[in-house]
Design a protein around this nucleic acid. Structure first.
Length: 720
RNA sequence: GCGCGGUUAGCUCAGUUGGUAGAGCGUCCCCUUGACGUGGGGAAGGUCGCAGGUUCGAGCCCUGCAUCGCGCACCA
């Protein structure tokens, strides 16, 4: 067969060179954005002329506006963009509402580190100055971050973008705070809180972590008893000795008995208390209590009406009650105190192999100092109850089943939530005080009232994000797009965020904020190690995108990544999908090159063999559609990948070469038409995953049902 | 203490309601073929942690064990 049979040049010039993502991606994104189709209000009518009525809504978890996007962001952008693009092509009114998070404590910590580097400290800055500086820092990062979301191909509606400090959000948050107050679910109480001596704020239980420590466990002589403690520096004020009421060893000591003893700083009088909170098997079964600095002790003191006295100040230094040790840092003081106890022969023995867990600040790893502090708390049980029902009845469906169990377990064991923070960067709490009296409200109750200086835990406002962003309760968007379809976020913030959104959404709007929860795992490095700046193994998604293209990055993030489990991001794998992009590029070149303009393709009658091929495609399309409907993105991605490479390219194209070299005009025309259908159909199936290259190829096709692939109709059948 | 997982090819992991094991990377061999060398063809490599059970049939369901891991929690 002579070479002249072929019509070279049918494919546009660009297909003669390898696909170069860097040269086209930014332009394509601009084309999408300029089209206005990210905004559901602008989407064109459907093929049959009807309006799009069914909404599909995702509220984007707002990235923290305090740094660059990391691999986890790239993963959520990929997953959510796939879902939104899929539903948009299926004719839904698809809304993906983007946002940016001021990220209260997180951002303040980042900014404090920056201040420290400059030799400054937030504690030496006026409140307003600090707030202003963090705001500038945040807004600069916010616009930077928005650019990065664009680079990752996010087809979100920028016209609806929200910031967590927007007026609308604050108004909603204040409304919820007021309602909680009105409903008796809010209280201000002096409770033990997790106090970080470095950051000078209380933290919720979720914001503390536990570290295993092996420390000395001191057995101290306390009058006729021996008490065991790992923290002798808290013991100055301990005037009550507690044991279990059923502990036979101490049966002779009765509740209320008093006795004299020589203690750290001299003689004191102690009183016997019996309480069931005591673990008879631990230490000696006897302990003294420090109600101000320990949760268990606090509760015992409460049950027995005992006094509370602060021993350690907010900076972690001993107070005057410590006598000669007053003013010392507790770490230094411990050594001195032990020396003194030894000199007074009050130490019975020291267990050097005592291992226990201590709570530490999740940001600075400093030991948490439990302190009594008056804070705002929310009664969570009633809110959790409604959330549990919603999960159990299926009003909200959690992927995976495993995470549903974990969520339920947490909700069933929920504790009250401390929502006040002693930090500047956040939404101020709308409350006022005069002496010990407190009032909730945005405006001052009158003369002599002072505004609460605290701010809300970021998660309190974030927990209201789905309905706050949509303009609860009156706006059209709220009515159209709430409840949202799916909340896609990291499994690591299941409690922090998902659970709170569920509870607060149900509480405030009466409806679940989302019908589905899709949780992704953590993105680790190629070896499965957690990425961290200190380890230097951080893979920047933007760098990866620059080298391999965003499409390849997205495929690498989604193939083989099952919901809820961690994944390893291997640049080699991304490289494989860059090759795949090129493969698709060349499939296109082959199909376009072999389109013979003389052949009558208008007839569109396919040979029997080709009907088999189109039917086969339809079956695969249906399968992929089902995978996408059921959030099996990893399977859908793999299937279209294999169809294109192993079926279309390796087999159908090879077989087509034989047909195109034959004299059978009918077969040639049929195959040309078939290949066009298979290619356009495949581009549609692949578009949610690899939006850039598919759109770029689409722009070079002549037979198509929409100018932009992003709004083309999802393939139901190519066989007719 | 309470709760939840993992254990499948050398490595990292898929495997949708049970129907005689898959991918990527890696390894080995071959091919400068006209869509693509960012390619093509081929190969080696797994008793699916162990032991029972249910079933016509189990990687998938049940029981126990081993082992690795994670989450939550007020042990002084």
């Amino acid at each position: 067969m002579e070479k002249t049979q072929r019509e070279p040049g049918n494919a546009p010039e660009k297909f003669t060179k390898p696909y170069d993502p860097g040269s086209v991606e930014a332009d394509i994104y601009k084309k999408w954005e300029d089209s206005g189709y990210f905004n559901p209000d602008n989407l064109p009518v459907l093929e049959d002329g009807t309006q799009r009525t069914e909404p599909f809504t995702i509220i984007m978890p707002p990235p923290n506006a305090n740094g660059s996007l990391h691999a986890g962001h790239a993963l959520f952008v990929t997953i959510q963009d796939i879902l939104v693009r899929f539903h948009r092509m299926r004719g839904k009114k698809a809304l993906w509402l983007p946002g940016a998070d001021h990220a209260g404590f997180e951002t303040q910590v980042v900014y404090e580190r920056q201040l420290e580097k400059e030799g400054r400290s937030r504690f030496e800055m006026p409140h307003d100055q600090l707030y202003k500086e963090i705001m500038e820092f945040t807004l600069a990062n916010k616009s930077f971050m928005e650019g990065q979301l664009r680079q990752l191909g996010a087809s979100c509606d920028w016209s609806r973008e929200m910031f967590t400090l927007d007026e609308r959000v604050i108004k909603t948050v204040y409304g919820t705070f007021q309602k909680l107050s009105d409903d008796g679910l809010l209280y201000r109480g002096s409770r033990i809180v997790n106090w970080c001596p470095k950051h000078q704020t209380s933290l919720s239980n979720l914001e503390t972590e536990r570290e295993n420590r092996t420390e000395n466990f001191y057995y101290l002589k306390y009058g006729p008893f021996t008490i065991a403690t790992a923290r002798p520096e808290t013991k100055f004020g301990d005037k009550y000795v507690v044991m279990h009421p059923e502990d036979a060893r101490y049966a002779e000591h009765k509740e209320g008995d008093t006795f004299e003893l020589e203690w750290i700083n001299g003689p004191i009088t102690a009183t016997v208390i019996k309480d069931e909170a005591i673990d008879m098997t631990l230490g000696t079964g006897v302990m003294t209590i420090t109600p101000w600095h320990d949760q268990t002790d606090f509760e015992i003191a409460g049950r027995h009406n005992l006094p509370f006295e602060q021993v350690i100040d907010w900076r972690g230094k001993l107070l005057p009650i410590a006598g000669e040790f007053a003013g010392m840092n507790i770490k230094d003081a411990r050594i001195k105190i032990i020396e003194k106890l030894e000199s007074k022969d009050l130490i019975e023995k020291i267990d050097a192999a005592y291992t226990h867990e201590v709570p530490v600040c999740y940001k600075c790893a400093r030991e948490i100092e439990p302190q009594i502090k008056a804070q705002w708390f929310v009664h969570m049980k009633p809110l959790a109850q409604r959330a549990i029902e919603a999960v159990k009845t299926g009003e909200v469906h959690v992927l995976t089943e495993q995470h549903e169990k974990i969520l339920l377990h947490w909700l069933e064991n929920i504790q009250d939530w401390n929502i006040s923070r002693q930090i500047v960067w956040g939404i101020p709490i709308p409350a006022w005080y005069k002496g010990d009296e407190w009032r909730v409200g945005e405006t001052s109750p009158g003369e002599g009232w002072t505004r609460d200086p605290d701010t809300f835990d970021t998660w309190f406002s974030s927990g209201q994000w789905p309905f706050a962003t949509l303009g609860f309760p009156e706006s059209a968007d709220f009515k159209n797009f709430y409840p949202t379809d799916v909340m896609e976020t990291g499994a690591d913030i299941l409690f922090f965020w998902v659970a709170r959104m569920l509870m607060l959404g149900l509480y405030r709007t009466g409806t679940v904020p989302f019908k589905n929860v899709y949780l992704h795992g953590m993105v680790r490095d190629a070896k499965g190690k957690k990425m961290s700046k200190s380890k230097g193994n951080v893979i920047s998604p933007l760098d990866v995108s620059n080298v391999y293209g965003t499409d390849a990055l997205r495929m690498g993030l989604v193939v083989g990544n099952t919901p809820g489990s961690d994944m390893n991001l291997d640049p080699q794998k991304i490289g494989a999908y860059k090759k795949f992009a090129n493969k698709l590029w060349n499939i296109t070149r082959f199909v376009l090159d072999n389109r013979d303009m003389d052949t009558d393709t208008a007839q569109k009658t396919l040979t029997e063999a080709d009907q088999v091929l189109t039917s086969e495609f339809d079956a695969i399309a249906a399968d992929i559609t089902s995978d996408l409907e059921n959030y099996r993105l990893h399977l859908a991605a793999e299937k279209i990948y294999h169809y294109l490479w192993d079926r279309l390219a390796s087999e159908i194209l090879e077989e087509s070469k034989l047909i195109f070299r034959s004299e059978d005009k009918t077969a040639i025309a049929s195959r040309q038409e078939t290949l066009t259908r298979l290619l356009t159909g495949s581009l549609k199936l692949l578009h949610p995953f690899m939006p850039f290259i598919t759109e770029e190829i689409w722009s070079s096709l002549s037979q198509k049902d929409a100018d932009l692939l992003m709004i083309a109709s999802w393939p139901e059948s190519v066989s007719k």
